[in-house]
Design a protein around this nucleic acid. Structure first.
Lengths: 230, 230
DNA sequence: CACGAAAAAATAGTATACAATTTTTTGGAT
DNA sequence: ATCCAAAAAATTGTATACTATTTTTTCGTG
């Protein structure tokens, strides 16, 4: 009789907004008016506001006093700093995994990559999310929850950065690089794994060019809001 | 004519609660009832709730569904993980500082240590806070704001850990070790600096023993609430 | 006196209401 | 037509009100 407590609506709002941002349905700079969001999700501004506050703490949202919330627009400087910290943390993740990863862990990584491959080219937004979640899974397998949380946060913010400073999303390369990381882990080769990780992350840091704004808020939230009411 | 926008009350509540926790005026496990806090600070539950939410995201507060908020009680496992990530991040801070720290930066570190020395033994809570702020200052001088934010968060959580798993607060040693770090930075000696940092952090990770609960909430918040109304 | 069920009180979760600020619109003067 | 000021609308920030859950108290029974 596990009571199966349902997810509290406050969390749902947070989670859906987060996903909309990470999947780049809400692009950097997009306004996030409290009542419009609340209406779409069928909740009051109270919960929306809480969610926005939390997203702000994570760096996915910026709020201007008396002026509302916007999807964050990390500057190039911020972007550089985020990637630098990712480097530091993910190198440590690799170190830990080399020492402790189990067969089960490797299997779950493989399974994830298979999933990535399955949607490759078919569903852009989901590809973006899955690519990030591979890194989060790595961090979680490291066994250090604190480390995993920070990696997760930085990976999310990288989604924003990619949305701003990259021509087109080409996840094709990523899936391949992910496989390479798994192989290096399987062979317990820390230098190879770190090298791949460095390349994988470093390649992104040196580009620039913007995109056009996305669809309007209603359309986006209607899509993400379905999960709320259902 | 810089307009000097005053701090919004929501931020003030957050900041004061945070300080009360970090200075160990509110000990791990202490209940944090929303209306009692709001009454003390002269604000509604709305703002208290926002603050508690943010503190929860930072790991300083834990909330149990329909049961309220408490000052977090990190387990020994969590504590270990926090110190591990601190190690990784602060070693990187040192690396950066060796490369880039200016005379002005070194001076501000010196100034901070002087301040630490001034209150040594006289004001326990402030000593605790200042000891942590030395590490935060180091991280800020590294020039990477993302890195600084994470170090800051972890340092705060360490305050909780010390409150739970340490016999008595002996900041005497810390001040001395802080001086040693400054010296190593001045001499551009990365290995020495990292060695000291490792010892400094590592020394704490291997102890255990609990303390007794603290004073009641009202007394504590009356002290911290002064800044709110003034 | 101990125990347990029901009632009461307390407290968290959410929605609504109100105040303050910002943005947009309007209308007149140049 | 353009610009500027004043009014209106929209939106945020905060407080209050209401609902649901949890905790405490009460009180009857074994």
């Amino acid at each position: 009789m596990t009571a199966e407590t349902p997810e509290p609506p406050s969390l749902t709002v947070y989670r859906l907004l987060r996903r909309a941002i990470i999947e780049q349905a809400l692009l950097p700079g997009a306004r996030l008016p409290e009542d419009a969001i609340g209406e779409q999700f069928g909740v009051s501004r109270t919960l929306v506001r809480q969610s926005l506050g939390r997203l702000e703490a994570e760096g996915l949202v910026e709020t201007r006093r008396n002026r509302g919330a916007f999807v964050a627009e990390p500057s190039l400087e911020e972007a550089k700093q985020i990637f630098e910290v990712r480097h530091v943390l993910e190198r440590d993740v690799i170190d830990r995994l080399i020492r402790r990863i189990s067969v089960i862990g490797l299997d779950s990584l493989e399974a994830h990559v298979v999933q990535e491959e399955r949607v490759r080219g078919k569903n852009g937004p989901v590809s973006i999310r899955l690519a990030g979640e591979f890194h989060i899974l790595l961090a979680e397998l490291s066994g250090n929850a604190v480390l995993a949380r920070y990696v997760s946060e930085l990976v999310s913010r990288c989604s924003l950065i990619l949305a701003m400073y990259r021509r087109r999303h080409s996840t094709d390369c990523a899936v391949d690089e992910h496989r390479q990381i798994i192989r290096a882990l399987r062979e317990r080769d820390p230098e190879a794994a770190k090298k791949i990780m460095d390349d994988h992350l470093g390649a992104v840091a040196g580009r620039a060019e913007l995109e056009e704004p996305g669809e309007d808020l209603e359309t986006v939230l209607a899509r993400y809001g379905r999960e709320m009411t259902a």
